[in-house]
Amino acid sequence: MNRRVFFLIPLVVFLILTGYFAVGLTKDPKRLPSMLEGKPVPDFDLKPIKGRDNKGFASTDLKGSVALVNIFGSWCVACRAEHPFLMDLKESGAVTIHGIDWREEDPDAGAAWLKKHGDPYALVGDDPKSRAAIAFGVTGAPETFLVDAKGVIRHKIVGPLDKKIWENTVKPMIERLRKVGAS
């Protein structure tokens, strides 16, 4: 073999590494792959939060129609930012939203927060010890799961759900799921 070719090896290695870094460094290390997409929702049975009229929230409530499950907390700043969009979504009637109130230190805080900022949820479950959050593989709030009529998790949104993510990803997925479910 021509020995000159060997001088090119470091350059080739460098270019390959540059390629990897160019892709890898633009990724957010906080975004972990979801283990649960395509799998049934984990079993959970949460008590209602104090000060809100409902019966709590359990995995069996997710059978029958497409729904969103939103992990939030009154302590969570990003949830506050997300909240107006969830209210709009509820107003539009596009999809049922259920909430998991995660890690409230003060048991009254969740209901008070919903009273102050509006309550977009059909059912809300209390998860003070992260049981449901861990079962869902949640790493931070807010996170939102799209669950189909059979109770299978179809998509996970890490961070605030907004109009852009809704229009581009979630809404088309819901329409597709409903079409499949109806036929």
Binding site: M35, I134, A135, G137
Partner: peptide
Amino acid sequence: YVVSRYGDF
């Protein structure tokens, strides 16, 4: 159990 929730990560 923990791996089934969060992956090998």
